[in-house]
């Protein structure tokens, strides 16, 4: 009798509760797999953003290095440092360990307050009608609507904020240049950072950043 009741129970199939538990467990499993997938994709995007940010930073460092090659002032002549687009914010005459605060690396030619200051991976500013100034005094007069100007035009890529800071190591001779690239995390509130505010660097939960640095020396190879 006992055996018969037992076997009858065994044949009864799954109860609703059991089925629900099974479904719940498989849903959790699926969710985990999907989550893994999105994490994987985010990781790929993040890796790419980091590579692009590194190159943007190197882009800036190279610009500063090249400008330092143009910086060849000697004691017997007044050098027009105002023409040095990136080095000109430095305190002249120089004092050891003095320097600039963090400065924006890419500035619209006609700097209109409120312009988007983020750049894409080619260093182009994000905002139609705002030209990329290539870091040099003379701007480019072509408008953003010009179809031939698209190489530097906004695209759908990740946006970055680029800042730099200069410090005298040896006055009037050797500089430390730091470049900082910041960009909103994938799940971050990118809209809040489009003007690249100063508070961005402190917000590590919403913003990725990396810093590159180098030293640059006055070009002593060029004799006047």
């Amino acid at each position: 009798m006992v055996a018969a009741r037992k076997s009858a129970r065994r044949d009864a199939g799954f109860t609703l509760v059991e089925m629900l538990v099974v479904i719940a467990i498989s849903v959790i499993g699926f969710l985990a797999m999907i989550h893994l997938q999105t994490a994987n994709m985010r990781g790929t995007t993040n890796a790419w953003d980091t590579v692009v940010a590194t190159h943007l930073g190197q882009h800036m460092l190279e610009t500063i290095r090249m400008e330092a090659l143009e910086w060849s002032n000697d004691t017997d002549q007044v050098y027009n440092q105002a023409k040095l687009r990136y080095l000109s914010p430095l305190p002249w005459p120089a004092v050891n360990n003095a320097g600039t605060d963090w400065l924006r690396a890419f500035i619209p030619i006609d700097a209109v307050p409120g312009d988007f200051l983020m750049v894409n991976q080619a260093g182009a500013l994000f905002e139609s009608g705002v030209e990329y100034d290539a870091g040099i005094i003379n701007g480019i007069s072509t408008g953003g609507s010009d179809p031939t100007f698209g190489e530097l035009a906004p695209n759908r890529n990740q946006r970055f904020c680029v800042q730099y800071r200069l410090t005298w190591v040896l006055a009037n001779y050797l500089l430390r240049a730091e470049v900082r690239v910041l960009w909103p995390r994938q799940d971050g509130n990118s809209g809040a950072w489009e003007s690249c505010p100063a508070t961005m660097a402190a917000n590590a939960s919403d913003v990725n950043q990396l810093t590159l640095s180098t030293t640059v020396m006055r070009n002593v190879a060029v004799s006047p």
Partner: peptide, 24 residues
């Protein structure tokens, strides 16, 4: 493979850089 933003220095005095960009 593309190149753009060509920066030329038109200085002739060797002490006064005059940089200008050719974008394309």
């Amino acid at each position: 493979l593309q190149f753009y933003d060509f920066v030329f220095d038109s200085d002739t005095s060797r002490r006064d850089p005059n940089l200008a960009v050719t974008p394309l």
